[in-house]
């Protein structure tokens, strides 16, 4: 069987031809297998979000090929790729439409990758399954489904976004520091929920984090980016026994630079 996602020699620069030209991804090769839960770590500006955005199709890449289950998607726009990809952004406001109600937002996600016609937007049977899904969050949102989502707290919105991303089972779930904007307690709640959903639905997942401990604790595989290159990629047994000093050592060995540990752990 072909891997879920395959990236071959991906290059991406921004503002080409200006003084600000910035070569962000420098030949990324990455193969993601079914059931992989990959944590991605790396310093500010290393290209983590750019990597994720190029998988989601937010912009065309300059060079290289991206295929999903063997199908070349390099030139497909975001809205086409949405059929296979669920996403949660860092900013809780990014993942939901604030003036739509909770149930309307979920109805939009329910139709991800499907044709939208002139049927009723929120149907009764959907309402029922949204309610069931919201109950799992244990935030009492199942009784407030007609509330504008913009009135929810960041953590609540992020939890709903996560539900929305998995409402139609994605082939790939992309999480870009989706807990970074939350307070520690809420952040832990959303992380626990992430783990629960990913495990129950066996979702193939990419999760960017700034927290080394999280990167080690979650997932079966860890990738470290530095200046647009993958410098660490470990999985399985080896990853399970990894410690933060090991990781710093690996990074140093592979990239030739010393990592400012605080920058990664504390943010």
């Amino acid at each position: 069987m072909s891997p879920v996602l395959e990236m071959k020699n991906i290059h991406k620069s921004f503002e080409i031809g200006t003084v600000n030209e910035n070569h962000v991804l420098k030949g990324i090769d990455l193969t993601i297998h079914e059931g992989d839960f990959i944590t991605i770590i790396g310093g500010n500006g290393a290209g983590k979000s750019t990597l994720m955005n190029s998988i989601a199709g937010s912009f065309p890449v300059d060079q290289g090929k991206i295929s999903l289950e063997g199908k070349d998607i390099t030139n497909e726009p975001t809205m086409k790729r949405a059929k296979y990809i669920g996403r949660v952004f860092q900013d809780p406001r990014m993942g939901t439409a604030s003036r739509l109600t909770i149930e309307e937002n979920m109805a939009v996600a329910w139709k991800r990758g499907k044709k939208r016609g002139f049927g009723i937007g929120v149907k009764d049977e959907q309402r029922h399954s949204f309610q069931e899904a919201l109950k799992r969050l244990d935030l009492g949102l199942e009784n407030r489904m007609k509330m504008e989502i913009g009135l929810l707290s960041g953590g609540q919105r992020q939890a709903v976004t996560l539900l929305m991303a998995s409402l139609v089972t994605p082939k790939l779930l992309l999480l870009d520091e989706h807990t970074a904007a939350l307070d520690p307690k809420t952040s832990q709640m959303v992380l626990d929920l992430t783990k629960k959903i990913v495990e129950e639905e066996k979702l193939t997942t990419l999760m960017i984090t700034h927290n080394m401990e999280q990167a080690i604790q979650y997932g079966n595989r860890l990738i470290m980016l530095n200046e647009g290159n993958i410098v660490v990629d470990i999985a399985g047994e080896e990853k399970q026994h990894l410690t933060i000093p090991d990781l710093l050592e690996l990074f140093h060995k592979n990239s030739g630079t010393i990592l400012n540990e605080d920058a990664l752990i504390l943010s």
């Binding site: 989601a56 939901t96 739509l100 309307e104 109805a107 139709k111 939208r116 929120v122």
Partner: peptide
């Protein structure tokens, strides 16, 4: 309040979220 109507409203609210949902 149809599927398409919701999609128009979410496009106005949040274009990137809408695209991420295949709109």
């Amino acid at each position: 309040s149809t599927e398409t109507g919701l999609a128009i409203r979410s496009t106005g609210d949040n274009p990137s979220m809408s695209e991420a949902n295949g709109i």
